[in-house]
């Protein structure tokens, strides 16, 4: 017992302040991309995932981007990755990066904010993918991040949940389980698509083994990344429930 107390003293208080201006990401971290030019031909050719379209409607689709940086390497004059980790969006089309400002996710309406704003429970559904998104959701439950202090919690049963957070491209083999989990959550409910896979199929887009989130499960929040940084996920969830203006 005394050893545990000494260890507790030694390990110290480690919960980070969030949101905070002091958050420092590694210099090589790739955050929100910025288009420096709309001549995207070279960048589009370098992208393996069809995330960049050149020509008539040049744009970078954050929902498809795996943040490998190949475009910025091939066309540094056109694409640049910033250190901004705040990447969420409320609508799929808002993930299309053009020259105009990136439109981050909006807070739920006043009615829903009243219900979810101070206590928000999520059932996570892992549906394909590589489990890295799951790992970065799990990390939010550790003392470094302490998701619970914001009133947000991952729960075991969909019956206890206010919404689902989906990761993975939704494999054919997980479609039914996802559907059942979603319909087991009582309304009103929220759906969060976390990671490139859940948003667009990501690296697995076009595989016949994957079906994507079905159309009758409407998505309220998109969190891009492969996987999204825990800061990105936390920022997105807090924005949704109105804890970050």
């Amino acid at each position: 017992m005394i050893k545990a107390l000494i260890a507790r003293f030694r390990q110290g208080y480690r919960t980070m302040e969030f949101p905070s201006a002091d958050i420092k990401l590694p210099a090589r971290y790739l955050g929100l991309p910025k288009l420096k030019s709309l001549k995207l031909e070279a960048a589009a050719a370098a992208c393996a995932y069809g995330a960049i379209s050149a020509g008539a409607n040049p744009a970078l689709d954050l929902g498809r981007c795996v943040f490998c940086g190949a475009c910025a390497q091939a066309a540094p004059e056109a694409v640049e990755f910033t250190q901004d980790y705040r990447l969420c969006a409320s609508a799929r089309q808002n993930l299309m990066i053009t020259e105009s400002d990136f439109k981050r996710a909006e807070t739920l309406g006043a009615d829903l904010r009243r219900i979810f704003g101070r206590s928000f429970r999520l059932r996570q559904v892992s549906a394909g993918g590589c489990a890295a998104c799951e790992a970065d959701c799990n990390v939010l439950q550790t003392i470094g991040w302490d998701l619970g202090r914001f009133g947000v919690q991952f729960v075991a049963s969909p019956r206890h949940a206010d919404g689902i957070l989906v990761t993975g491209p939704v494999t054919r083999n997980m479609e039914l389980a996802l559907r059942k989990t979603y319909f087991a959550v009582s309304s009103p409910k929220v759906v969060i698509a976390c990671g490139a896979c859940a948003i667009s199929g990501g690296p697995y887009a076009g595989h016949e083994e994957c079906v994507g989130i079905p159309e009758d499960i409407p998505v309220d929040l998109y969190i891009p990344g492969c996987p999204p940084h825990p800061l990105t996920i936390l920022d997105a969830i807090l924005r949704l429930i109105g804890r970050i203006p």
Binding site: C68, N173, M174, C210
Partner: peptide, 29 residues
């Protein structure tokens, strides 16, 4: 089998620019 997303056969015909990322995401951890 619920996580089956058909990665292995996508290496066939490669290496191409997606092969490496397929390898990186065979198991994310």
């Amino acid at each position: 089998g619920y996580q089956h997303r058909g990665v292995e056969k996508r290496f066939i015909g490669g290496p191409d620019k997606r092969s490496l990322h397929y390898a990186e995401t065979l198991a994310g951890d």
